[in-house]
């Protein structure tokens, strides 16, 4: 199942909707790396709230996506890792080294806004919309 990717200002938001096969994860990686260039994005939020399992392959792919997106000049934040999933990942021995995480979409967007702002304080990129979007999503739940 394909992961929809939304563009909101300088940020891409990829929301995983359902369990992902390895092929889905490969496609997500390729799509995100491509779109970061197409839209000249500065940040990516990868929302995994809907994932009920993150095994070693999926975790490695999230790390790869995050690091490769950084090579393309953008920052990734993984949001929405569920309590049981977090616990299982630790038990399994998985660490998301060098990967930024946040509790949910709202926190992730705030984190990206701060990162983008501090990387280029004079940037004219409008970040105001990011927080507003998080609020909309929040109400939607």
């Amino acid at each position: 199942m394909q992961v929809p990717i939304l563009k909101q200002g300088p940020v891409l938001i990829a929301t995983v909707q359902d369990a992902l096969t390895d092929a889905d994860l490969h496609r997500l990686r390729d799509d995100l790396l491509q779109r970061v260039g197409t839209h000249r994005s500065l940040g990516v939020v990868l929302d995994v709230t809907a994932l009920d399992v993150l095994d070693s392959f999926a975790a490695r792919m999230l790390r790869t996506i995050s690091h490769a997106v950084r090579m393309r000049g953008a920052t990734t934040v993984i949001v929405g890792i569920q309590p049981g999933v977090a616990f299982a990942m630790v038990q399994l021995g998985l660490r998301l080294d060098g990967v930024d995480t946040a509790l949910d979409l709202e926190d992730g967007l705030n984190m990206l806004a701060r990162t983008i702002r501090s990387a280029d304080p004079t940037s004219t990129t409008n970040l105001a919309g990011l927080a507003g979007l998080a609020e909309l999503e929040w109400i939607d739940r």
Binding site: D52, V53, L54, D55, S56, F57, Q82, P83, G84, V85, F87, A88, M89, Q91, L92
Partner: peptide, 17 residues
């Protein structure tokens, strides 16, 4: 409990892989 279900599902995923 819910967390245990996730631990079990993760272990299954690993051995199946």
């Amino acid at each position: 409990a819910g967390c245990d279900g996730t631990l079990i599902a993760t272990a299954i995923s690993e051995v199946a892989r």
